[in-house]
Each structure stands twice: as structure tokens, then as C-alpha cells.
Amino acid sequence: MNCEQVQPLLPEYIHKHLAPADHARLEAHLAQCPVCQEELRATRQVWQALGAVPVPEPSEKLRPEFYAMLAAYKQEVHEAPGSGSSLAGFWQQLRALLAPAQALRLAYGLGLLVVGLAAGYWLNGPKVAAPADQQQQLAALTTQVEQMRQVMLLALIENPSATERLRAVSYTKELGEGANERVVEALLSTLNHDENVNVRLATLEALAQLADAPSVRMGLVQALPQQESPLVQAALADVMVLLQERRSVLPLRRLLRQPGLNQAVKSKIEESLKSLSPGRPAAPSTTPSSHETLHYSRPDRGAGLAV
């Protein structure tokens, strides 16, 4: 062993960590080498001096702080068991899965909004671009709806329920000018044959609005003798006055002659006849054979009474 080999071993030699063989060889070298003896002395001195370097005691708060940390960690682990496959851990994982789902939901909502806006814009666009086309469509649709209503009306008007029949009649108002002959026919039939007074009154009201058509007028006039209800008779008389329908004078007079006619209706018809033939001078000069002459006297008399 030479000095260069010996010196790195000195600390171990001091510590007595050397293998016995190395220990013996090192001592053999030391015995004949003053340089290494000096080196050993110095190293040992420093080594021992190092041992005298005091280490302060850790302060008293270290221990309680450690146990506080340990307790906190235990609680932390208990709340969120990372390695454990317990139920709590499962929930933790589930929650972790759901957390991004909320963001996903928001994104989904925003996506829907964008799609909705785009669709609205797209649907709006063609409308503005082709108004003529759209009007055509609208007209077609309106026609279709009216046809539907007609069918509905015709179907409902034969319904056993008076309410349904009333509803059917009310459709006439919405049909407006779309009411065709079939409808008028059905309405007139209802006016003449329906068992419910309310339905007949409503029908009369509906027909009065359609009275521009000659067929309707004619029908109304023809309906006069068939009415038995005082209410309908009075209402019909009103309609006749409103329409100034002179053809109704004859059936009205005939009605007036009917036995057992309601007193109120009687006076109503008399009034109507008066307004339908205001100051008609023909009355006195008419031939007695005519029904008309016969009936003319009555309004005259009525007028005479009034004067």
C-alpha cells in the first residue's frame, strides 16, 4: 500500500469500518510512513472535532406539529381514500366523472342554442326571399281550412247534441263567403226542422248574414210558414224587415191568420208588415179575391188604431 491508497481509507480506519485485511495492510503502511501518520492525526482531530459540533435539540413544537399533521392526513385519507376501493372512493370517482359532465351539459345547451338560431335564420330567410310563393301557399292553406270547416259543419249539423249543432252553425260566420249551396241547404234544413229553438235561432242569425244570396232569401221566405216557435217567428219577421224582403208579406199575413198565434208575435208581425209596406196605397183598392187585400185591411186597421 502506498500513501495515495492509504489516505482515502483513513476515515474508515478511524471508524473501524475497514475490512480486516485492509485494516492490517493500512496499519503496516502507517508504521513506516510519518506523512500518513500525520495525516491520520489531523483527520482524526477533525473527525473528532466534528463529533463535538453540537446539534441543537429540535424545538418542542416539532412533536405536536407532527402529530397534528398526522391527524390531518388521516382525516384527509379518510375523506378521500385514494387507494381504497370503498364506496366513498367510488363516489369520489363518480363525482369526478360528473364534474366534466356539467361542462358538457353547458356546451350541449349552447350548441342547441346555436342550432336554434341557425334554424330560425334559415327559416326566416326563404320567407323574405319568396313572398309571392308564400302567399300562394297561404291562399291554398286558407282554402283547405275552409273546406275543412264546411265538412265539419255538415258533419256536426246532424249531430244529436244541440251544442254540437250550435257549434256547426257558428262555423258559418267563419266560412264567410265560402258558404256554398250545400251549406245553405243544410242551414235552411236546420232552420226548418231542428227541434231545438236555440239552434234554429242561431241558424237564422247565420243565414241572415248570407242573405245577399238569392237562394238564401228565398229559403228564408219559404221558412216563414214552417216555423212554430214564437221566438223564431218573431226573429224571422225582424230579419225580413231588415232585408226589406217584400216577398215575405204574403206568408207573414198568412201567419197572422193562424189560430193560436202568440200575442207578442202577432203584434210583432203587424209591425213588420207595416214597415215592409209603408203607406202602400194599394190596400183599399185591391180585389177582395186576393188574399192580400184581405190581409191588407188589418195593418190599415192597426195603423188606424195607432193614429
Partner: peptide, 18 residues
């Protein structure tokens, strides 16, 4: 430094747990 060393002792034990 004693104070810093104490803090680090705590740190080491925490890492041992973690």
C-alpha cells in the same frame, strides 16, 4: 438553520405518508 430544518423534518414525514 434550526427553524427551517424543523419545517423540513415535517415535510419529510409528510412525504413518507404521501
Amino acid at each position: 438553520r434550526a427553524d427551517t430544518s424543523e419545517d423540513l423534518v415535517q415535510n419529510v414525514f409528510y412525504r413518507m405518508l404521501k
